[in-house]
């Protein structure tokens, strides 16, 4: 029932493209690049981007957000059983931020994440980079850069990044199995 959408190589190449995009958009500035991952998939992607950017000589500041308490469906679904703390140890005021997630779907996660970020301060800008854009937006939110695209036939399909130690793949499966 699990359908392999993207192989390890394809995911790695997508991460390379994402890192290149961030670096070229950041320009030659000496200022650190601020990457903020959304738990849990986005945090893994942000880690992978940090490694690539640091190898290319950039300085990176990392933070993670858990948007559990900012979700608009808390009444319907309740808090997630495995909640992490948000971890933003640097001052985001007047910083250009890169918000990182694994799969972009309805846009509600991103809306919640932006709401949470503004509770930490007023960033200069927020740009969104995602590993995979699966379409199906319910809000006027778009990524500034997407590593991969795949639009499933149905909203009931679940698309997941499986980030095992050194083997990353993206699979598609019916939501009932997810």
């Amino acid at each position: 029932m699990n359908n392999l959408l993207f192989t390890h190589d394809a995911v790695m190449q997508a991460l390379d493209r994402m890192a290149e995009h961030i670096q070229s958009a950041h320009g030659k500035s000496d200022a650190p690049i601020c990457l903020i991952g959304i738990h849990t998939g986005g945090a893994n992607v942000a880690d992978a981007l940090q490694t690539r950017l640091e190898q290319a000589g950039a300085t990176v500041m990392r933070g993670n957000l858990d948007i559990s308490f900012y979700r608009d469906d808390l009444d319907l679904n309740g808090p997630h059983p495995q909640i992490h703390s948000s971890d933003l140890s640097f001052d985001i005021n007047n910083q250009p931020l890169w918000l990182i997630d694994d799969v972009l779907f309805t846009g509600r996660t991103i809306r919640a994440a932006m709401g949470e970020l503004f509770d930490f301060g007023r960033p200069e800008s927020i740009s969104l980079v995602v590993l995979l854009d699966r379409g199906g937006r319910e809000l006027p939110i778009q990524a500034d850069f997407s590593g991969l695209y795949h639009q499933p036939e149905s909203k009931q399909q679940s698309i997941k990044l499986l980030a095992h130690a050194d083997h990353w793949t993206i699979i598609e499966q019916p939501r009932s199995l997810a």
Binding site: T40, N77, G78, P79, T106, R108, K160, A178
Partner: peptide, 24 residues
């Protein structure tokens, strides 16, 4: 307070798979 306001709170029903959240 969060658990009280979430009438669905029930540890027995908590999904074992952490990815089994809404469509968010």
């Amino acid at each position: 307070l969060t658990a009280m306001c979430d009438l669905r709170f029930n540890a027995h029903d908590l999904p074992s798979n952490p990815d089994k959240r809404g469509t968010l």
